[in-house]
Design a protein around this nucleic acid. Structure first.
Lengths: 197, 197
DNA sequence: TTATGACCATACGCATGCGTATTGACAAAT
DNA sequence: ATTTGTCAATACGCATGCGTATGGTCATAA
């Protein structure tokens, strides 16, 4: 009979554990660097165990990436989507860029690995959702549909570029302070200000 | 005695030929996908030839990437640097994003491969040069030093993000027309307008 | 206490890709 | 005509990494 695995019981591994470890590797070294034998080593077992839990490497990637997407959606809906003022939404979203680093690192790594079909599919959906959200927010701030769409793309793509730059040259330049100032500049530059007279 | 190779003489290959082929592969499949045996196949020879021209794979990457950087600098200095009006410089630079696709594809591919030390070094220099140029241009347009720096980063990183998105989902969405409109929106949004009264 | 199912180790086959060693072909110089 | 230097083919060794096959351990259910 199947065993009921409790969180603290680390006597044996579950699919979840493997997916979690996979996401960790992806975050720091990218999808290409994800090797099952290395992963098994990290988890203190051999790959004989891996192939009991998953059919192959691709199945792991798929499961891990979809778990990330799921978590991404839930986190978003528990925070930003609950705000009503569009300007506040955007500001919070922008400032989020430097919090919850792990999730952003995964995002960035996945964005660079769209040669893998499953990853491409997921990043497709993620991009669409985020750009749509941004477009709606800019429309609510009074921009016309066309401008809002372009501004949404500009916003999203500057986010993509920032993460890539920040991740790859991280030991480099730009203190935490500078990053904060940069984000505030972006807020000033991209979010239309409401001058109520 | 060494043979003097003319451009049209394709009876045998030169270092340049290998570097050119390497850059082409990098542009379309990234640095990681660069394999000497596959490259030799593309050039119609075997790898026995490759190791006569280069010590190893890394030497090829280094030579190819540095050739690209060199060409990048020269192209820049032959066009944009020659303009005097900073606003014109920036506009031309932005609109360049959709021309000379090959060079942009290489840029984007290299930016995703900074795990390779030589590539990291080159992209480091390239990034610095471009951000510096943008910063100076924005300052010439009247922005203060701090704002100009941030705006330069925002500009550069949105460029990085755009290329990555455009490359990876290229068959997808966004017609040439849409891209043009997007670029014009970016120009409007990021370049301060001179209202002379 | 025996049997079953969950989890893992060991050992293998196979493909890819780097780098080396050796030999060959062919043009230009002597 | 012979030699020398340039470019390339062939064949090998080696490492990595995927996937499979098979057997072992250990808890729990019967």
């Amino acid at each position: 009979m199947p065993k009921l695995q409790v969180a603290s019981d680390k006597s044996s591994l579950t699919e979840r554990d493997w997916e979690q470890a996979a996401l960790n590797t992806i975050a720091h070294q990218g999808v290409a660097a994800l090797a099952v034998e290395a992963l098994a080593r990290d988890l203190g077992v051999t790959k004989g165990s891996f192939y009991w839990h998953f059919a192959n490497r691709d199945a792991l990637i798929k499961a891990a990436v979809m778990r990330w997407e799921d978590n991404d959606i839930k986190t978003f809906e528990r925070s930003i989507a609950m705000l009503s003022d569009p300007s506040s939404k955007l500001r919070l979203l922008f400032r989020r860029t430097i919090k919850e680093i792990q999730s952003h690192l995964i995002f960035s790594a996945l964005f660079r690995s769209t040669d893998h079909p499953v990853v491409a599919e997921v990043m497709q959906r993620v991009s669409e959702r985020r750009v749509s959200f941004l477009t709606r927010s800019y429309e609510e701030l009074g921009m016309d549909s066309s401008a809002a769409g372009h501004r949404a793309r500009l916003t999203y793509l500057s986010y993509v570029g920032f993460l890539q730059y920040y991740q790859q040259f991280k030991a480099l330049r730009m203190s935490q302070q500078e990053v904060s100032e940069y984000i505030e500049h972006v807020i000033q530059s991209l979010i239309p200000q409401q001058h109520e007279e």
